[in-house]
Amino acid sequence: MTDHRDELQAGEYVLGLLEGPTLAEFERRLAHDRILQTAVANWREHFSAIDANVTPIEAPATLLEKIETSIGRAGTVERASGFRERLWSNIAFWRGTSFAGVAASLALAMVVVSLAGRATPKPIVVAVMQTAEMSPGAIVNAFADGSLTIVPLKDFVVPEGQTMQLWTLWDKTTGPVSVGLLARSKSLHFKRSDLPRGNDQLYEITLEPAGGSPTGKPTGPVLVKGFATTPRI
């Protein structure tokens, strides 16, 4: 049974009335919470009766053509990187945003990288990991010697008895591989030589029980995630 308050909030969400941090927090929960998803679906179903009675407006003949041209392009993208798309939580999906936010925050990463770049080796790939609200949450730099640094860009709340765990994923069959644990929101250097450092490789941080995931695969909520890109240094 859904909490009364959750159901009302789900109703406000469907009406389009949640905004700002309330919306962000609701969507963060919605990504994982099946009961909340059901509450949203129920309101949506009831209110959709209103859409059924809208006065139809004739579409210009060119609209279908444009759509088919666009899906021709999108179709290719989907087949090439379908897995990558599916990894995204449905938040970006419902927001109607795509990877535009990644491009924006990559600009920020470039600044961080170039400031740090003078004294340290240059990373082969950089990943800006984003929060569910699509704001930059942490940056991963992966270097030629196999080491990685993680630079959190915000204070993540880590509840008692839990830890943050950094994962990377480059191959669907292998699944996510643990890079290491982060007890707090602080920069960390990981010495690893066994991980690939490819473009489009996924990095993500999840919240796990203290000591790391008991199963060796992510079990907790995803705090941030992002894909690696070669920096233009």
Partner: peptide, 10 residues
């Protein structure tokens, strides 16, 4: 509606 159909497809 154009963007929505592309999203529905993908």
């Amino acid at each position: 509606v154009h963007d929505a159909f592309v999203q529905i497809w993908r």
